[in-house]
Computed example of a mutant assay.
Amino acid sequence: MSRIVYVNGAYQPEEEAKISVFDRGFLFGDAVYEVTAVLDGRLVDFDAHLARLDRSLKEIELSLPIPHEGLRELHEALIAENKVGEGIVYLQISRGPAERDFAYPEPALPTVVAFTQSRPLLDNPYAETGIKVVTIPDIRWKRRDIKSTSMLGQAMGKQAAKRQGAYEAWMVEDGFVTEGTSSSAFILDADGVLRTQPLGSHILPGVTRRAILRLAKEEGLRVEERPFTVAEAIQAREAFLTAASAFVLPVIEIDGHAIGDGVPGPVARAFRAHYIAEARAS
C-alpha cells in the first residue's frame, strides 16, 4: 500500500503528491521544517517542536498557515493513515509558489507538506555500540538557529562523514565544535562537567538538547553551556549527541581517537534511558 502524505490540505498517495516547480522552497530553500519522533504511535515533544516552528517562521517573516491544533491533527492523521508505531513525521512550510524573484512575494501562499517515515528508534544498534564522529570546518550560513531547509553544508558534511566510515560530522568554527550536521554535540569533560554550545544564531536550538539539559540539572549534574574544542572533546570522559530521531547516542571515537574507554559511557546511557522513559510516559 502506498504511503499517504499531506500536501496543502490533501491527504494523498505519495506518487500523486505534487508541488509547483516555482515553489520557493524548491528554488531558494525559502522554507522551514520540523521533524518529530513517534513512539508507540504518539508524538514526542510536539509542543516544543511547535514552539521552534513558530520561531523559525517569525525569523523568516512568514505566518503560520495552519493553527497548532490543526498541525497536531495533521500529524496524528498521518500517523494513523500510515500505521506508524515508531518513526518520524516530517513537516515543511515554504513561502509557496511565485515567479522567480529573490524578494518575498506579497501575498505569500505557503506550501505545507508532511510525510511519515517508519523506522526503529528504540532498538537503534548505535545506542549499544556507540558511534564514530569526524570533525569538519563549519561552512554554513550565519543563521543556523532557523530550522531552514537550506542544508547543503550539512549534507556535504554528512557525506564526508560517511566516506570516512563515521556516523556523524561535528562542525568546527574558530576552533570550537558548534554542532553536528543533524544533531547537538555534548561532552562530559575531564572535570565531570556536562558541556554544550550556548544558544545563539550559530547553532540550532535542539528540542532534545533542551530536554537533556533539563534532565541533567534535575539529576544534579554540573552543566555549563560553554564551547569546547576538538582537543577537549577527545580528552573528555564521555561524548554524545542528541537529535529528535536519534534521542541520545554515545560517541566513542572522534577523528580516530577513542573517547574515554572507547565504549558507550554510563552518563550517555542513562540520559538515553531516562529520555525514552519520560517520552513514553508523557
Rank of each mutant, 00 (worst) to 15 (best):
Y275R: 06
K142I: 10
G192D: 13
L215I: 10
T135E: 05
A166M: 02
A31N: 15
A243N: 01
E106C: 10
R72A: 10
R280G: 11
E86L: 12
A185R: 00
A161Q: 09
T196Y: 02
K58M: 01
V112Q: 06
E224V: 05
T129P: 00
L213Y: 03
V230N: 07
R95Q: 07
A103Y: 13
A31P: 04
P227S: 12
R100A: 05
E278K: 10
R209D: 03
N82S: 05
V5A: 06
R143N: 04
L241E: 07
V21P: 11
K58W: 00
Q159T: 10
R209W: 00
V248D: 05
I66T: 15
P266E: 08
K18L: 14
L152I: 12
L213Q: 11
T242R: 01
L121H: 07
M1A: 15
D40A: 15
L39Q: 08
V207D: 11
S2H: 12
L152H: 05
F240K: 02
K217V: 09
R119L: 15
T135K: 02
V113A: 11
G260R: 02
V207K: 09
Q154D: 07
E278H: 11
D30L: 08
E106M: 11
V113C: 07
Q117H: 08
A231C: 03
L215V: 04
A190P: 04
F240V: 00
G256A: 05
R280Q: 09
A166E: 09
T129F: 02
D30T: 07
D101V: 12
P266F: 01
V177T: 04
A48V: 03
P250F: 03
L221E: 08
A244M: 11
R237F: 01
I252E: 08
H49T: 00
A231G: 01
L57K: 14
G153V: 07
S56N: 12
G260H: 12
H49Q: 02
V5F: 00
L39D: 02
A160F: 14
V35W: 02
N82D: 04
H68R: 12
A98S: 13
A37V: 05
R72E: 15
E224F: 12
I136R: 11
G70R: 08
D47K: 11
V84G: 04
R24K: 13
E253T: 03
R209F: 02
L213A: 13
L64P: 00
V21A: 09
T129R: 02
N8L: 14
V38W: 03
E16T: 08
E81W: 03
G96W: 07
I136Q: 10
I136L: 11
S182W: 10
D255T: 08
F115H: 14
G192N: 08
E218C: 09
L109K: 14
D174Y: 05
E168A: 02
A236Y: 12
G260Q: 09
L188E: 09
A216N: 06
A236M: 09
K142F: 02
D23T: 03
Q117V: 10
D174Q: 13
A211K: 09
I19W: 08
A166D: 04
V35F: 02
V32H: 06
K142M: 03
E225S: 10
A166Y: 01
G157D: 04
H75W: 13
D54I: 05
L64Y: 07
A160T: 10
S245A: 15
E14M: 14
E128C: 01
H202V: 06
L215Q: 12
A231I: 04
K162D: 09
D191A: 12
A246I: 01
L221V: 15
